[in-house]
Design a protein around this nucleic acid. Structure first.
Lengths: 183, 183
DNA sequence: TGACAACTATATACAAAGTATATATATAAA
DNA sequence: TTTATATATATACTTTGTATATAGTTGTCA
């Protein structure tokens, strides 16, 4: 239900076609948000059907480029976006993360395997943190809200890395204890 | 794909039926994870079809209670769980949160509305933090991994609350500046 | 120049995750 | 004894996410 509003929100900045929407999300929110064409095109159709956007079909000859469908938000669409903005968000966020799920069951497997997967995660999030810090400069000029979101991403990333490193240490520690108890 | 492994992991602790699985998740991970019967029952059927679990049908007369289907993990199921544990998690976590999405577009709406939604979020996460802290004592006895997960939840929650409060202040600040500029 | 890769662009089938609701029995309470 | 609540399963449906097909455009390099 919220993907429709994500698209509507982007179209409220500027007219776009599906491909451009994906590109925009990837460039600006690629580290914390991703979307697929399989979600974009059907949703654009629905938004048009509901009268929230209008579609202008551009034949290849019109601008030299490939066949495009340019979408523009309507007045009804803007109203709907504002209505949604003023509405309380449904339920609090839920974290669906296959690493954390795995982590919960690491006790059933071998400590060595757990540690090497944790090490992989540390690398992944170190790289992500670098990307986020690099992007932060660009986002600073895009208004409070976008800047604050970017800062949340960075803080959350730093905290998560700290936790991963601490987890690593504590797992090693508790493993040694277990070995001693068995001796 | 990972819900199957969540169920398999729980069944590796002890035999359960669908209703009990939901109850268990709600009690222990209800603040960070939720699951529906519509996900549990079809997945249990699939797991049985694939030979990862066996099912024992209990008629109402057998134990006095209502009709139950007790599921037990098989050796093949345990092997599959261990194989999955040793595998690198697919892609890093992605946060799907309707509040944060809304936040990105708050600039299109009125500052007052944004602030009141932020205030609601603060209340929600203050309550959640209390629940998490209360549960922490119970989780301390459940091994390193579960304890570390609980601690991640608490730290993440504290950090998020701090961010919400800071965001609130900075939005008010930048709103005053905007008013002055217009004057 | 002409073949081939990379990029732009849309579309659809499919799978997984999540929501809503229906059904039935058992137990507790009023 | 009726009613509400808890236990238990099932299924239809919606939303989200993945994979893949199709087609024109641009760039390149042999």
């Amino acid at each position: 239900m919220s993907i429709k509003y994500a698209i509507l929100g982007l179209l409220n900045y500027t007219d776009m076609h599906g491909y451009r929407i994906k590109e925009h999300i990837e460039k600006n929110f690629g580290h914390m948000w991703s979307i697929n064409f399989g979600q974009i095109y059907p949703n654009l159709k629905d938004l048009e059907k509901d009268g929230y956007v209008t579609m202008l079909e551009l034949a290849p000859s019109d601008d030299g480029g490939p066949h495009k469908k340019l979408y523009t938000i309507t007045e009804k669409g803007e109203e709907e976006l504002l209505r949604w903005l003023s509405e309380s968000p449904e339920r609090p966020m839920l974290i669906r993360d296959s690493f954390l799920l795995k982590f919960a069951f690491f006790g059933f497997g071998e400590t060595g395997q757990a540690l090497s997967i944790i090490d992989e995660q540390i690398v992944v999030f170190e790289e992500q943190l670098l990307r986020r810090r690099k992007n932060h400069v660009r986002w600073e000029r895009m208004g409070v809200y976008v800047r604050l979101l970017a800062e949340l991403g960075i803080t959350q990333n730093e905290m998560y890395l700290e936790w991963l490193r601490r987890a690593r240490q504590e797992i090693i520690h508790s493993d040694k204890e277990a070995v001693l108890e068995n001796a």
